[in-house]
Design a protein around this nucleic acid. Structure first.
Lengths: 213, 213
DNA sequence: CCCGACAGGTTGTTTTACCAAGTTTGAGAG
DNA sequence: CTCTCAAACTTGGTAAAACAACCTGTCGGG
C-alpha cells in the first residue's frame, strides 16, 4: 500500500492535484491500482518492462537497412500479388514499386523482406536506388513525401516455400515459411506501404508480449 | 482545429481544468494532438477504432467455452512437452494438467486448443471435469484460485502437422500448422497457464492492428 | 451477542485563480 | 516598405479549496 495523498503532498510540498496527476500516470502505466475509500496499491509490473513488445512489421520500418547486412535482390516496378493489391486498395494486376532484400545473419541467408510502394509514393525517394538506406524507411518517407504513418494492420500466415524461395533462403524444402504482411496506413486509413517478411520456420519464431486487457 | 480551451469551457459551463482533462483523454487515445501556443488539431483515428485489436492468446482465455462448439479430446495429468515446460518454468518431464479441445466451426473441425495448468492450479476448479465451461477460463481461475492474470507472452511458430493432428483436424497432410503459444503470467512474472492453439494454415490466418510507435 | 449509526480515514471530481511558455498578429519605428 | 517588438492569443502546469463516494473501525443500543 502506498502513502495516502495527504501524506504525499505534505512530504513533497506540492498540491494535492499534482500528487493525483502523478499517481494517475502510474496507474495508467499499470504500476499501481487505486481503490476509492481504501488506498493505492503497488501492482508491480517490472514484468512487462523486461519483456519488450516486439512487433515484426514495426521493426523493418524504423531501423536503417545499413544496420542489417544483406543483399538487394529486386528493385523496380512489378505487378502486385493479389494479397498485396488488396492491402494497398489497388486494382488487381496493377503495378507498384517493389524493393526486396535478402537479409543475412551470421553469414547465412536468414529472411526475405519485401517492400511494396504505390508508384507515386516511390517517386523522389532513395528507395528506387540500389543502395542500402542509411535512414529508417519510415523516417525517409515521412520527410520526403510528407505522409504520416499511423497504424499497421498485420497478417500472419504459414505456407510451403516456392522452389525459388528455397534456393534464395538456402532452406530445406519440407519446412514451412512464416509470412508476415504489414500494411502501413495513415490516420485516415489510407494504405501507404506494405511490408512482407518471409521467415523459414525452422530458424525463426515470432515473440511478443502484451498486457491482459 | 478545435475550439480553444476558453471557448470550450464557456460554451459547456464547466471549469477550464475539466475541459483540459477531457481533451487529455482524447489526446491519449490518439484522436487529437495539441501544440502549445497554436491549438488542438483533429488527428482522426476512426481507423484504429474500426480495426479491432485481436490477440489470439487473449480470446481463448476470456470467452466461455460454451460459446464455441467443440469436443473435449483430452483432460488429465500429462508429461509436459519441452517448450511448454520452459514457458511454465517447470522441470523437464514433469507433469501438469492438460485440457485439449477440438473446436469446430460450421460443422467442421477447425482448431485444436490446449490448456496446460500446473497441478496445484488445477485443483478445485471445474477445468478437470469433462464439461464445457460456461464461464471464461480467466474469470474462473481468478475467482477460484485467487490468481491475477497480468500479461501474456506469445510465441508464434509454423511446423508440419503430425499424423495424429492431420487426422483430428481433417486437414491435408502437406499443409503447415500455425502454432500459437500464449504464456499467461501474473504481475511478478510467475507463469500461470499456457495456451497452445493449432491452426491449419490453409483455413486460418492471424490478423492484428496496432499503432505505429 | 449482534447490528446499526457514526466518525474519520481514503480516493474521485470539480471549481477558481494564477503563472509559464509557445505562436501569431499587428502597430509603430526606422 | 521593412523590420522590431509588444500585445493577445494559444496550451501547459500548479495551488488551494470544496464536495461526493467509498471503506473501516468504534461505540453504542437493542
Amino acid at each position: 500500500m502506498l502513502l495516502s495523498e495527504h501524506q504525499l503532498f505534505q512530504e513533497f510540498g506540492v498540491s494535492r492535484l499534482t500528487v493525483v496527476a502523478a499517481l494517475r500516470v502510474l496507474r495508467e502505466q499499470g504500476w499501481i491500482e487505486s481503490q476509492q475509500g481504501k488506498g493505492r496499491f503497488v501492482r508491480g509490473r517490472p514484468a512487462m518492462a523486461s519483456v519488450e513488445s516486439n512487433r515484426t512489421g514495426q521493426a523493418y520500418l524504423t531501423s536503417p537497412e545499413t544496420d542489417s547486412p544483406g543483399e538487394l535482390v529486386e528493385a523496380g516496378a512489378m505487378a502486385l500479388p493479389n494479397r498485396v493489391a488488396a492491402l494497398l486498395d489497388a486494382q488487381l494486376k496493377s503495378k507498384a514499386f517493389l524493393r526486396r532484400r535478402l537479409v543475412t545473419r551470421e553469414g547465412e541467408p536468414s529472411e526475405l523482406v519485401s517492400l511494396w510502394l504505390p508508384l507515386e509514393l516511390s517517386e523522389g525517394t532513395d528507395l528506387t536506388s540500389g543502395e542500402a538506406l542509411p535512414q529508417g524507411i519510415r523516417q525517409h518517407l515521412q520527410s520526403r513525401k510528407g505522409v504520416r504513418f499511423d497504424h499497421i494492420v498485420e497478417q500472419i500466415t504459414a505456407r510451403m516455400p516456392t522452389a525459388q524461395e528455397v534456393k534464395q533462403l538456402g532452406m530445406p524444402k519440407n519446412v514451412p515459411l512464416l509470412a508476415v504482411f504489414g500494411a502501413v496506413r495513415d490516420a485516415s486509413s489510407r494504405p501507404l506501404v506494405v511490408v512482407e517478411v518471409l521467415l523459414p520456420a525452422d530458424r525463426h519464431e515470432l515473440e511478443d508480449a502484451y498486457p491482459v486487457a
